[in-house]
């Protein structure tokens, strides 16, 4: 029999591996629903990672760290917004430059923090509940960002289907011309979405440096921003499916390491490559099903908008 300790350990590590992906992907989902494709997720995540780490270290407060992580991601999305929303620049290329810029900026800001021990987000501890076997630590012993990620999924799902603002956002993403002609400010809606996406990506990055591995290392996002982008496609732009996808990927990442721990001899590089290969496989499987994608893909995704005078 597998004992409860191992199950608990696996479940806990899967949650920590999945949360940064989920946070970043749910933000990008909202951005893409508004018709904007922000490929700079990786850059905003790394900004959140160093911003959160530095702020927590300097102030001694992980709460401030989390706040600064979100702000750092949102701030980095501002140049992207100016180019893409106001200057109608090519979204793919601008997103790429955001990633390059973010990685460079984070590496520079982070240099003094290399090797500094970090602060770890405190975990919830409810006497009685958290002490329960398996479900105690898994359900009631997480840190705040894990719970926030699920609140965000639920809130986004409600927002996109039940709220007027959410429907407006979807209208902008599906036909910016019609929305514009109805008097909706396309640029304003997209700005809000881009800033929200930036803040979520920043939180995802902050989770890496404040909870996943409380340390700052260069390139610590290791492509998670790109995996989160793939998750949005995988989810066919539905919030609940983003959560399922993020946890699938978290599990793939972690199972490799547990397999190695269990004595199966695989070079560590192959285990590290698993999430990237899984992303490719998933993209292929999902993209084959064209009808599914066509139903939910925002029709104006990636197209520049210039309001007519």
């Amino acid at each position: 029999m597998v004992d409860a300790g191992i199950i608990t350990a696996i479940a806990l590590t899967v949650i920590t591996a999945s949360t940064p992906l989920l946070l970043a992907a749910i933000g990008e989902l909202v951005v893409e629903r508004s018709g904007v494709l922000n490929l700079g997720l990786e850059g905003m995540m790394i900004a959140g990672a160093i911003g959160g780490f530095a702020a927590a270290n300097l102030t001694g407060s992980t709460a401030i760290g989390v706040g600064v992580a979100a702000v750092a991601g949102a701030v980095l999305s501002i140049p992207f917004g100016i180019l893409v929303i106001n200057l109608a620049a090519n979204q793919v290329a601008t997103g790429l430059s955001l990633t390059l810029f973010g990685l460079g900026a984070a590496a520079m800001v982070g240099e003094p923090f290399l090797g500094t021990p970090g602060l770890k987000l405190p975990k919830l501890d409810i006497p009685g509940l958290t002490d329960l076997q398996v479900i105690g630590p898994v359900l009631f012993g997480q840190d705040g960002l894990v719970y926030l990620s699920f609140v965000l999924v639920a809130a986004t799902s409600w927002f996109l289907t039940r709220s007027r603002a959410g429907l407006t956002l979807r209208a902008v993403g599906d036909s910016h011309d019609s929305a514009h002609n109805l008097g909706i400010s396309v640029r304003k809606v997209r700005w809000m979405a881009v800033l929200f996406g930036g803040a979520c990506a920043g939180l995802g990055g902050g989770y890496l440096s404040l909870a996943y591995t409380p340390l700052w290392t260069e390139n610590m996002t290791a492509g998670r921003g790109w995996i989160a982008l793939a998750l949005v496609v995988f989810s066919s732009w539905l919030p609940w499916r983003v959560a399922i996808g993020a946890y699938l990927f978290g599990a793939v990442t972690i199972l490799g390491f547990h397999a190695q721990g269990a004595g199966i001899r695989i070079p560590s590089q192959f285990i590290s490559a698993l999430p990237y290969l899984a992303t490719i496989v998933v993209l292929v499987i999902i993209s084959r099903n064209k009808t599914l994608l066509r139903v939910n893909t925002p029709a104006c995704l990636g197209k520049p908008f210039v309001p007519a005078r």
Binding site: P79, S97, L100, F101, A107, M108
Partner: peptide, 14 residues
């Protein structure tokens, strides 16, 4: 260097 390069691409696109 990387900061410069990223910024340069931003400016080219703008």
């Amino acid at each position: 260097t990387r900061l410069f390069q990223g910024f340069l691409l931003f400016m080219i696109l703008a």
